[in-house]
Amino acid sequence: MSKIDSLTIAELMPTPESVLRQMGVPKQRINLDKVYGLTEDAIKVFSDCAEPAGLLSEISKKEFAFIYKGEGNNAKNTPLEHIFTEADNLAVYALTLGNKVSKKIEELCNSDDVALGGILDATASVAADKGAEFCEQYLLDILSNRKLLTHDICVLAYSPGYCGWHVSGQKKLFHRLKPEQIGITLNENCLMNPIKSVSGVLVAGLRAINYFKPKWNFCEICTTYSCLQRMKRLRDSAKNEKS
């Protein structure tokens, strides 16, 4: 188990464009002066109060199978249960942006500046996603240093609460990883505190093992379909490698 010492705010800084995209603003509307300016303000606030910390631990498929089973609440058939069995390497991870960011969002919203608070919240969400990507790269680097990387190997993060992996899966994940050492705790409803934290499993393997069609039972109630963006990211990275 290791703390990710190389994780800094600079690695997680979102651009105004990425924050506004996260808030549903289409590309052609991103340059609206007032909105763009407020987003830059929110990013500045974020850079002043984020205290990122991360933790990663490699595990075997057998160990992860136990974690994945969780409290027995997962959907009956999920993409991840097929994906991780085909992985070359696995690691569990957790990352937080620290308590100050969450407190600042709360403070802004309670002081009647929901506009800045709301955009800061979106900023932190984008940064947390970037944090997960940072952890993916971190594991790739570890594997690369061990000369374990072959062509078309990638790392993709999966988290409890998504794609049929029930959020109660956090309990066993926390028991194994102990993210309390970087300040993340879990409440009885499996909500992480600070809220702006991410955790899950990093799956290293062929890109192809991560591709699936979002036609599982639980997809009907999904409001994000973020799996499609994640798969697009993999396909784009494959194209970039070829070119």
Binding site: L20, M23, R29, V35, A115, G118
Partner: peptide, 14 residues
Amino acid sequence: MFLPEVLLAARAMK
């Protein structure tokens, strides 16, 4: 209109 614009509008209104 999109959420950030709505938030700014609500701020002006308030």
